[in-house]
Nucleic acid binder design. Sequence first.
RNA 1: GCGGAUGUGGCGAAAUUGGCAGACGCACCAGACUUAGGAUCUGGCGCCGUGAGGCGUGUAGGUUCGACCCCUAUCAUCCGCACCA
Length: 986
Amino acid sequence: MEYNFRAIEQKWQQHWKDSETYKVSNNSPRPKCYVLDMFPYPSGAGLHVGHPLGYIASDIYARFKRLKGFNVLHPMGYDSFGLPAEQYAIETGQHPATTTEKNIATFRSQLDKIGFCYDWSREVRTSDPKYYKWTQWLFLQLYNSYFCNTEKKARPIADLIHKYATKGAMPKTGTPIPGTHFTADEWNGYSTAQQEEILAKRRLAFSAYGEVNWCEALGTVLANDEVVNGVSERGGHPVEKKKMRQWYLRITAYADRLLEGLDRVDFSDAMKEMQKNWIGKSQGAEIDFEINGTSDVLKVYTTRPDTILGVDFMVIAPEHELVAQITTADQKEEIEKYLAYVKSRSERERMADVKQITGCFTGAYALNPFDGRKIPIWIAEYVLAGYGTGAIMAVPCGDQRDFGFAKHFNIPITNIIGEHYNGEEANATKEAILENSGFLNGMVMKDAMGVAIDKLEEMGIGKRKVNYRMRDAGFSRQRYWGEPFPIVWKDGVAYPLDEKDLPLELPHVDTYGPGPEGEGPLANIASFVETPDGLRETSTMPGYAGSSWYFLRYMDPQNDQTFCDRTVSDYWNQVDLYVGGTEHAVGHLLYSRLWTKVLYDLGLIGFDEPFKKLMNQGMIQGSSRFIFKVIDLYFDNRNWPLVNHNIPILLISSAKYEQLNNGTDEEKRKVKEQIVSHLIKYNFIETLREDDPSETTDRENLLGKIDEFVIIKTHVDVNIVDGVELNIAEFKKWKNGEYANAEFIFEEDGKYICGVEAEKMSKSKYNTVNPDVLVEKYGADTFRMYEMFLGPVEMSKPWDTKGIEGVHRFLRKLWRLFFDELKGKVWNEQKATDAELKVLHRTIKKIEGDTESFAFNTAVSAFMMCVNDLTDIKCNKKEILSPLLVLLTPYAPHIAEELWAALNNSGSVLDAAYPVFDGKYLVEAEKEYPISINGKMRTTINIATNAEEAEVKQIVLANEVVQKWLEGNEPKKIIFVKNKMVNVVV
RNA sequence: GCGGAUGUGGCGAAAUUGGCAGACGCACCAGACUUAGGAUCUGGCGCCGUGAGGCGUGUAGGUUCGACCCCUAUCAUCCGCACCA
């Protein structure tokens, strides 16, 4: 009886399906655990071996938690709205719904083969109207909410309207600013459009004019990731900014809470840093500078108010509103030239040469409020209109960019930091003692910051200000394949749809081209756009709309009354473990955190961080293989008549290629000679004879002439390479026999060794490995364990199929502990010995710990070691094997279930699992303590684990062996370190 | 430039977090059983050395009885962000 993984896996997968083994209930006396994978976008390419890595890890954890007695929610679904389906539709005319359906079917069949324990009854698809009904509904919640700055939370917009209507919006102190402040009476007198305009400034989902990436050549709006280096990803056409009405989510209102929430979740440092960086909070001050001879003020933002006496010039963004106003007549021409130059530069150029220093003097001066110095005002493209106030005070001795600018335009530099400034480069220290700084003289810079701000506030020309780099999130796309907005426009005012009219279904379209003025394809469908109440919004929601809340829908997927019942979300609560790639660090993760916070504020759910722990699986890179083709230029260049029409492609192996490029002269000559003799063999000689008999065929002579060849490094399919050795037979069949008569220059051992390089997995690089093939060849259990065995889940690594044999061998070896090919059943019910129990206990302890801490790779190693040991001591006892199968279930569920059934006629693994993890099997063995003398390790002694420190010392001293080693030297010191070892110092 | 991470055999990697470095697997070598071996089993496998022994965790220092682990500096690779005032 041998390990027939195909039959076993099929049998159990069918069994799980038929008996709904993994269906999970929303109420259980057992503690809950929510294990979630980032749901995939079902692309047409299907899965490659990189995709399941995270799924396998979470599956192991979910199964493990189930064994430990948790009620585990482990669902899967599809993020099925998105651009690629639409692109594909444009190219082929197939409706995105059709291709999406097909792709999902492919994904599902691939996933099923790996034996996951998903509760498929909870599957969600973001493009399903039953799902996006609630995405639209949640959008309306955002639309109907505002961020209350007093309570720092979302509240219904109705509250705000009520406040405006009864109390207005007047400043606590000072004079009201028209347009910003109004009385209740004024509010009540406003038109709907006027009121809406004010409310739009507070709504969490709002529309406003904003810039989009407009590609004139394609006549369409592009998403940010479709723009690469300022040109369209497809076609490479120039892309410019265009103002269009857009929807936004007011994520900036939540900046502080998104930052603060990071302290309460278990994400990697890298992930937290990325999010912090993205939010980009900086503390500083806004300072008003009087502009000389006018009543205007120039408002700048700085994080270093302490350097205010070191300001040597001002720089404002070319787009700054004051530019036209302050430019003097003398400078007008120059400024206009500069503005024209800036405008002519595409985004791409601006990004390409950030080092280039450009700028122009406006002729105007600002006045330093403390010493009255006249400070020249410049414009320059390095100051961004969108950040801070779009104007900076430049302190060249303390900021490298300001320094470069000052040097370039010969602006004199004031030194306020004494010897910290060397005149060669700026020094951004905060530790220097200020000089030339008036009232700040003698203070340490970091202390002076507060003093300076206090003074500015006192003078009424500055205030503390926190700035964020993060912008509000653009929420509309001029595309078809996304959720339609439940919004109707009338007279320039947006009106939300009534809840009972949801979902607003996506209408069928025949073409996916953009509408007039670059609107989405929906604009072309009159029957959709025109309603009795007005015109429908024609853009659709972005990909992250549906994915921002899907983890909630899994909890209550069939509910048609609400997006997720509150009692259900209270039960499942936060996702305990969320597994996915780093690529969503600032997109999806930030948005779902935002939505969760809003829903929490509105009382719709009871937690404000969605994911308790996040694990990022590393990317599995492709490990590309290369062949090296010799292209004979000498022959090609001369265009000589071909005698031999069937010239084989010549390939040299990677070591030869290496020698040819970086080898010694001797090596180079040798390889070259080999190549030349092949070239001669196949065409050269014959060409010579016919064409120019005068040329000699003398070998040396030819060698000099025919070094005109190039070697082309080409991808070869990894699947026909065994490790690095090319499978010649397969290779000759590859690509319909393109290389059928290839000639090789082999290594000395007669092998063709390919070149190797790690790259992103991609079909065009022939480095993708399909999990189906591996599952077919080795089985799902082997595949699962091998993916885990590759290394820590979080780490990126190139895929290498070679080692999978080792894991497969392990499973077969395990099988042989139960069944022999000839003898059949070999397991028995004898009583286990202490030695056997020791092996088991060690394994339980190790694997339980490793699984809990996601060290799946070392857990797999522990399994292997255990089976090796049991084989060595010829232990086939049920008492040992049975608990081992419990441990194995999460990792290799099929074989574990099969063997479990073979051992036990009744009862499930689950029933038996609790005692295994209860410590019932865990008998603490004596611990081995290493003994060292002067830090030099000598031996170990066994000491019962409960021995006290003093006892240990006595044991050491009484130990004859130790005494002998001491060789008469009295021990000076006996160090007992953390229950781990005993060290004797002499 | 800023931020984060990682450097250990031919390769993927372990090391109970300061205690016998290289577990486990791949590859490789030798042997056994075989008509055969891409099955299975046994042994070997960091480097130098016949040997005893010496040297070894990117590099250079430091702390410690003891350092892959902690500290300082430095180099290399990967990933984010990038004129953010």
